[in-house]
Design a protein around this nucleic acid. Structure first.
Lengths: 313, 313
DNA sequence: AAACCCGATAACGCGGGGTTATGATCGAAC
DNA sequence: GTTCGATCATAACCCCGCGTTATCGGGTTT
């Protein structure tokens, strides 16, 4: 099959009117043009260039090629330019999935960073809990999944074996949230055993699993009175004195609620927040830029919470 | 610069959904696709294919390439088809120039042959005397020149050195045309010296030159009473008894006139009719086909005149 | 757990397509 | 007419793009 190089040569000959001119205009030597024309001619089985005295003229077939050359070459240029735009971050689309509580501050900050640096990169964002986002990543329906894994209990270690690339964003400390008038509220620090008989308010299924795991470590089975995926609701329920809850720091930083006190646990529990992608996607410029932005956004949010061990809503 | 092969591969991957599928659909081996994709990726500096588990998906940049591939490849196919049509005589244009008296039978017959064999080849035809047609051929303004050269006097031999390809068509015998009531009319054959004192009617400038040359050989200078490029007029003038003339056989076969007799010369004089082109153009299929048709048309006209040594108008 | 399918990699070879050096030829200019 | 400059053709050479086969590793399936 014919390739584009031949067409470029034919067009250059048509434009310049001579082999030498075409050669210099393309940055080639003159024999390169001679040979290319000869190859094309025996490939097509017909004469393309008529050598008339000093200079050359295209035959009918040669003019056909030169005419089509502009179409092909412009389409080729367009393709190259478009891909170059993606590679050069002057374009590109990143499909980001993140768990709901990350969308409060971490993700918006990252998106703002990306937009500031690469205005033409569009990041689409979908909320999804970690199992779902990872499945989407596996299926090729998303490019970056922001996921969390509870220290010890979760698959955080196990999934390192997956063909995923994991970038650590935050270590999110989990705090005990109690009503402001709760007996332990003033302690400054709390042990799970101190509230073993309180009713519990559980968050998402995996958070509930974490709670059960921690409680088991402390030697009790929690009385889960409510379940809701909405952490604002969790805090509201606590504020009304309907129970206590474990709430990650990240959420406390975003959703302030009056009437509750968040206490660090004596046996510190954390969840790790990661940005997950694939080795391939990691090398896509727009994806890499978004990952970088996520890391920076995480670094910017971390000290804020580390400095406020006892935030009061 | 990117070439078309890469785009073909990307499109095949997009269509087939796997490297192996793309390979078989293109007639390649599977590693060829792997390597091509890798080359493209490092050429563009970005990932084009996302390897997800068993099969592969195109990234955004990859899809851009696959999308542009259809444009480029279809344009490429169109060019190839069009050139193929010319090479396969399903298209093509031939610019033919011939001297006026050839257009009576030789050229029309040849054109009919071409049209019958290759209906889509168009032959454009312009009348021109040999010097003019050869100049046009040299300038690239025509593809085939049908020219004649008088034996001995003309540049017939000399022009073999030119960068021209010459195909012999006819040996056209020159006859002496006299009024039917002329003394030599009944001789069956004539010598120029027998009419040395008659007034002469000359044809085109080169024909006149031929006449002068022949007369010089016979030891006299002809009294040229009339000159005209129109051979029908020449014959008319002879019929009216205004002089004698030398007229090529080819014309006598086409333009019959009452009242004249054409006699073969004792010292036979001929003009050679050639089809002239360039080595390049000779290899253009449509040109070659037209040349062949001219040769056949000439072969078909030759015996007709050879068999009638003494045509009487 | 085994079999199968698919992609990656290694090693290899051919040829397209570039280079420089040189020759042949045409057109122009002295 | 002869010389000179510009142009295309050819030869010899070289590199690397782009195929090939053989083999390995990983994921899905049964």
């Amino acid at each position: 099959m014919i390739d584009a190089a031949g067409l470029r040569v034919m067009k250059a000959i048509a434009d310049e009117g001579s082999f030498t001119g075409a050669a210099t205009s393309l940055g080639y030597s003159q024999p390169a043009i001679s040979q290319m024309v000869r190859r094309l001619e025996q490939r097509f089985g017909t004469v393309l260039v008529e050598r008339v005295g000093r200079h050359v003229r295209l035959t009918e077939a040669g003019e056909v090629l030169a005419r089509h050359a502009v179409t092909v070459l412009s389409a080729l240029d367009a393709a190259e330019e478009e891909v170059g735009a993606i590679a050069g971050l002057r374009a590109g689309r990143v499909r980001l999935m993140a768990f709901p509580s990350s969308s409060a501050s971490l993700v918006p900050r990252a998106l703002a960073l990306v937009k500031a640096r690469h205005p033409d990169v569009v990041v689409t964002f979908t909320e999804a809990e970690p199992p779902e986002s990872l499945a989407a990543l596996r299926a090729g329906d998303c490019d970056i999944a922001v996921a969390f894994a509870y220290e010890g209990v979760d698959v955080g270690r196990g999934e390192d074996l997956e063909p995923f690339v994991i970038r650590k964003l935050l270590d999110d400390e989990v705090r005990l949230v109690v009503p402001a008038n709760h007996p332990v509220a003033g302690h400054g620090v709390a042990d799970l055993a101190e509230v073993r008989d309180d009713p519990w308010i559980a968050g998402c299924p995996r958070c509930r699993g974490h709670l059960l795991s921690l409680a088991k470590g402390a030697g009790f089975v929690p009385d889960v009175a409510f379940e809701t995926e909405d952490y604002v609701a969790v805090l509201g329920l606590v504020a009304e004195g309907l129970g206590v809850a474990l709430v990650p720091d990240l959420i406390l930083g975003a959703a302030q609620t009056r009437g509750v006190v968040a206490l660090p646990l004596t046996r510190v529990a954390r969840r790790h927040i990661h940005a997950v992608t694939t080795p391939d996607l990691q090398r896509v410029p727009a994806v890499r830029a978004t990952l970088d932005a996520l890391c920076e956004a995480a670094a910017a949010t971390r000290p804020q919470h580390a400095a406020t061990p006892v935030p009061v809503g």
